[in-house]
Design a protein around this nucleic acid. Structure first.
Lengths: 232, 232, 232, 232
DNA sequence: TATGAATGAGGTTTCATTCAT
DNA sequence: GATGAATGAAACCTCATTCAT
């Protein structure tokens, strides 16, 4: 059991080393030798823990994915409202990626475009995640928070796609500098994009002026209040 | 001139063959031999046209990028309103990716995560595109179509990120089946997410029913149009 | 005939270009393309004049060897005495190599170690040269100028070897700077090394001064003549 | 230590195999595959020991050069007189080359004309050798054994050049058959070529016979002593 | 005659992976 | 359990050379 523990630790180290080297060089440019060197072991040792280079790659997201899921689930349970939960998810992703750039590189630049990864157990965990996301959106629809005809899959794609696009840009180009600053703007766009107009269910009667004086209009905007946000 | 033409044609064929093989196998799994076979030429011939395998890869997006840009620019000139232009862009992207899945694979699964591509001339064209996108959003902000505090870069990331996420999913998982069906839902989310409430500049008078009958409401929705959504 | 002349000129140009490129890069590092570029023709044109790259190499020494031989033969006919002829040969070689460093490179760094060159017609000319050299030494032996037991082949090897060693050093290391400055020292060593002591076959009687005045001695040296050189 | 020893042995074997193949085929004609076959290992194994084919080539002269230098230095210490040392060097070289024709081929036909070799550490050892040679000649000059105006560099070039010329001829043409037979003739030429006449500073009176009987002459030579050496 | 274009042939090199110790 | 050492397999790329025009 002592050895078992030892091996777990070493395995984790190997994964960490692999993450670093893969992030720096990409999968094909990275060599087992370099990973071994980074981990302070011999090449052959890596093969004691992982059957192939690709399996080593696939092992990288596992812990993060599993542990991350637990954490996030915990958070989500205490949060009320689909929109708020969306924000939590967005926060969580951007936070993780910002704090673990090597992991971000591996996940978004390497694994994302690896067809084999889709067959992985780890990927199944990711799938479950994805389902969770969809469920939250559905929940929001059902609760009336989101529009009825909202496509939960599209929303998911929008949120994750936007996050990933930004993270990749952050990794490769250095912009945006700060990922967490995106949390609120992104949340707002998405939530506004899918929320019920204002939850008001009566008749809406519009009265148009022939030529509404611009300045007046602006005042009116402020006075009457545009329903920028929803009510609950 | 005849020879020049011949070579242009052959070069285009090589690019096409490369696109296909790269799309199927990925960059590293694809071999020059297979591309040559696919193109019906010898390995060495490829090197008459492209100095390295990587240069061959980078040549793939060039024509699409250049020609695409022209086409889209033409469209955009005829379209009025930033939101409409956004929709045009979304349409254009999804259309291209749906019609050219090999190209989509190369662009989104291979080039997107290739750091060297960023140093390419072709990438510069992509950058110009990106600027154009931002300009359109800014235009929408100035015209009052979009909210004043809209972050154009975030909007761009959202649109492109969502598109790319969907295209990748389409390529790898087969979902969504139909990319163009995303045009309107995506446009709506984004535009709603960033537009001024509704751009209507009159008085808004709300008349509430005490208990609006569900069925009536639905009918009214369709009849009167506007607020597509319901209540629960 | 006009065309014939044209072709001869072009052939000579090709050889010149090849000489330059081979000298710079060595045989294997040099490419037909580069030689063609240097000559201002296409790769294929070279093959109109020479069947293979190696034949092009072997063509380089031909003109020099043939023309050189004629010239030198002319000189040798006017010169009397084997030692003087030896000096003429040494001069001629060093002169040629100094004036034509590219040729020297090709001859001494490339052809010298090419086994195929030995089968060449051009090499046969070189062999005749070599025979000539030996004949001169033999002549010197017969005339009594050189020691009876002189090995003409060794003398040839010594002269040519020394020259080549110096030329190579000159080419690769830049030392000696000036090749022609070697003519006399080299001649002296070799001739002293093989000449009859002084060719004098009588008794030698030495008469010593107690303290021969240095200056006188020097004068005497010049006046009487130390047998540095031979007589005829 | 056992493994270390094993690897040293294998490395030496690889060098031996390379020496053989390079000698037979030349550097460019020789292939790693053939060397590997000759050594009884796989191609890849060679690259475990040498980073490139060229480095493998450059490794060949190292041991010979180092060990040889030690041996020769030992000899030279016991030998008195610059002329005798010269003879020892000549002997040593010809002996090595005769005993190791493959090495001779590599050294004189391949390395001699390789510009990159000049940048090698091994070549630096060769340079030190060369300095040693010059020092011996200088020593001879200072001791009065050799003429004052002797150029040590020219002497070195003469000795080495002559040796190399003969060895190459021996390798390529089979002549001379026996290299060691050159030791004395070559030594004599060179030493005669540069030795002090006899350092005798008196009058020299010559008495000629009308017809000196050949045989008598020879006896006289021995009896009276040719002024091969000097006094001080 | 000159050449643009195509290619056959092959070599060096790289690495993931294996296995005896 | 760890590793030093060995290798199989293959890929990219280069060039001398050919041939239709």
């Amino acid at each position: 059991m002592a050895t078992n523990k030892r091996m777990e630790v070493r395995k984790a180290n190997l994964i960490k080393a692999a993450e670093k080297v893969f992030a720096e060089k990409g999968f094909h440019q990275a060599t087992i030798s370099e990973i071994a060197r980074q981990a302070g072991v011999s090449d052959a040792t890596i093969y004691e823990y992982f059957p192939t280079k690709e399996e080593l790659l696939f092992a990288i997201p596992l812990s993060m994915t599993l542990k991350g899921k637990e954490d996030l689930l915990l958070h989500l349970k205490i949060i009320r409202g689909a929109a708020n939960k969306l924000r939590a998810i967005i926060y969580w992703y951007l936070d993780i990626y910002e704090k673990h750039p090597d992991y971000a590189s591996v996940a978004l630049l390497i694994l994302k475009s690896n067809r084999e990864f889709l067959k992985t157990d780890t990927y199944q965990v990711v799938r479950e995640w994805a389902r969770l996301f969809v469920d939250i959106v559905k929940e929001g629809i059902e609760s009336g928070e989101f529009k009825v005809n909202t496509d939960p899959y599209l929303v998911r794609a929008a949120v994750l796609g936007t996050i990933e696009h930004n993270v990749i840009s952050h990794l490769l180009l250095g912009r945006p500098k700060n990922l967490l600053s995106l949390v609120d703007p992104l949340t707002e766009i998405v939530v506004r994009g899918i929320c019920q107009d204002d939850g008001f269910n009566g008749w809406r009667i519009k009265v148009a002026f022939e030529q509404p004086p611009e300045k007046l209009e602006q005042k009116l905007d402020k006075t009457v209040g545009r329903n920028k946000k929803k009510r609950k």
